[in-house]
């Protein structure tokens, strides 16, 4: 026989056994502290807006999100967010800043392909599905809520 005899099943087991594993515990610790810190900072900012600038709760909430988004986008453009992301993992993916990063990163990356089909189209490579399935779920929630309210 001129052919290796290891079967697919045997080999996939070998791969599973030899593959280095992520260190979930330290990754989770990093995610917890970095993600927590972003949320905590948002809370302090929110508190400041609401109590010191007497902005309504709703507008303060929007302002907090918008500020986080702008900061995250600028850090993305400066090449800092990817470094943070490497360390923090989900801690910088799950907060709204991760959503901003997912739009700003392809926007910068694809500017060489032009502002229409590069920046404009690729910006939604990751964020598009988020909006699509968010809207879908909200519509389903709405239909159920609407029927419920008529009963």
């Amino acid at each position: 026989m001129n052919h290796i005899t290891v079967t697919s099943n045997e080999f996939l087991k070998m791969v599973e056994k030899s593959s280095p594993k992520s260190n979930i515990f330290t990754n989770c610790l990093k995610a917890f502290f970095s993600g927590g810190l972003i949320c905590g900072a948002a809370e302090i900012y929110f508190y400041f807006l609401e109590n010191h600038l007497t902005i309504s709760k709703e507008q303060a909430g929007l302002l907090v999100s918008a500020t986080l988004i702008v900061i995250a986008a600028i850090l993305t453009g400066m090449g800092i967010y990817s470094k943070l992301g490497k360390f923090c993992g989900a801690g910088t993916i799950v907060p709204i800043t991760g959503f901003a990063n997912s739009m700003a990163s392809p926007a910068v990356e694809f500017k060489k392909e032009g502002f229409i089909l590069g920046v404009g189209a690729k910006m939604f490579a990751v964020a598009g599905p988020v909006i699509v399935y968010g809207v879908l779920t909200s519509a389903i929630v709405g239909i159920i809520y609407f029927i419920g309210s008529k009963l």
Partner: peptide, 13 residues
């Protein structure tokens, strides 16, 4: 906010 936000990120991780 810190603990709750952090925990949601841990689920993601």
């Amino acid at each position: 906010a810190f603990v709750c936000g952090g925990l949601i990120c841990v689920v993601g991780q």
